[in-house]
């Protein structure tokens, strides 16, 4: 609809034609969305065009962290209470293999070539590194307590892991599989992610209510971003997932029980907008072209689709019980 506005002089007929054209023309992309349902012990598979459930895949107990392999063939799901990773074969939409993960895996990250899996063992204060296809354990790296957030740098050299209990962000050298730096951030960091240029790491502190921006070269916190929503109590603003826009100009930050997603300018570190979504948004993902942001709302059992240009929520679709994470396969 955004294109219809400047063309108003053409009148109603033109608008009708445009509408018909929009209905007829399929979007330039389509994707499959995989949403983990923590309570339901399932993964809901949605078609991005129709936003209809294609399939509900049963998994192990307590599916949370989920990522897709770069080639789009596999979706890795942490099933914490089953102490393993369930691997969904995208072509079959079924769990066709499992990987040993170490105790209570919560979140995971893949190397950029998909060959390695980095897993946060929440209950065991370590990061487990596996070969993705064989499940061979390459390393178990001790970190602070309750590790959670995991992300691999765009150049594949570094993996960051947060430890919620210790309020730390660890930098792991992917060659040596050893810690190279540890940075103190606000209380209970849940997610750390790289800017698209790989220079900075943004880490969300759920209970601290802030996002820390860490310089990846100096390992110093260079910015601390605060949030304030009119009428919302500070203690309910609990940042969790951070997703960078495709061009890296904006960061989207899910604020949990504040029921909003914050939009932050990555140059000025100013919050430019707060988008209303469902209840308790935690994890999010972008569509392949970056035009849509999918926000998973834990308490309302749905996914809100946000247009990343207009920054407006468009629609919410039901998924399973207590949805947690999301992965997008182009």
């Amino acid at each position: 609809m955004k294109t219809a506005k400047p063309k108003r002089p053409h009148g109603r007929f033109a608008a009708m034609c445009l509408l018909l054209l929009m209905l007829a023309a399929p979007p330039a992309w389509s994707a499959t969305l995989f949403v983990t349902n923590e309570r339901g012990n399932t993964v809901t598979v949605l078609d991005s065009n129709t936003l209809k459930t294609i399939k509900t895949i049963p998994t192990g107990q307590r599916p949370r962290g989920v990522v897709a392999s770069p080639d789009g063939k596999w979706v890795y799901v942490c099933v914490g209470d089953s102490n393993r990773i369930d691997v969904i074969e995208v072509a079959k939409l079924a769990v066709t293999r499992t990987l040993p993960s170490g105790a209570d895996p919560e979140l995971l990250a893949l190397s950029n070539d998909g060959s390695r899996v980095y897993i946060a063992n929440e209950d065991n204060s370590q990061v487990t590194v596996l070969e993705a296809m064989t499940g061979k354990v390459l390393a178990q790296i001790p970190v602070g307590s309750e590790p959670e957030g995991m992300r691999v740098s765009p150049d594949n050299q570094i993996t960051v892991a947060t430890s919620e209990g210790s309020s730390l962000v660890h930098f792991i050298d992917n060659k040596t599989l050893k810690l190279v730096a540890t940075v103190l951030v606000g209380a209970r960091p849940r997610v750390a992610t790289f800017t698209p240029d790989g220079r900075y790491v943004w880490a969300s502190s759920e209970v601290g209510g802030t996002v820390s921006v860490i310089d990846g070269l100096t390992h110093q916190v260079v910015q601390t971003i605060n949030f304030a929503i009119p009428g919302m109590r500070a203690e309910f603003i609990q940042p969790v997932d951070i997703v960078m826009s495709k061009d890296g100009s904006q960061a989207f930050i899910a604020l949990g029980p504040a029921n909003h997603v914050a939009v932050v300018d990555t140059k000025t570190y100013k919050v430019s907008d707060y988008i209303v979504v469902g209840q308790r948004p935690w994890h999010m993902a972008l569509s392949p072209d970056g035009s849509k942001l999918y926000v998973v709302n834990g308490f309302t059992n749905d996914v809100t689709v946000v247009d990343t240009k207009s920054l407006k929520p468009e629609v919410s679709v039901n998924v399973g019980r207590l949805p947690w994470g999301i992965a997008v396969v182009p």
């Binding site: 209970v207 209510g209 500070a234 203690e235 609990q238």
Partner: peptide, 11 residues
């Protein structure tokens, strides 16, 4: 002060 005590919100 934002003390975390497994209660969701800070204390």
């Amino acid at each position: 002060l934002k003390l975390a005590g497994y209660k969701g919100e800070s204390m």
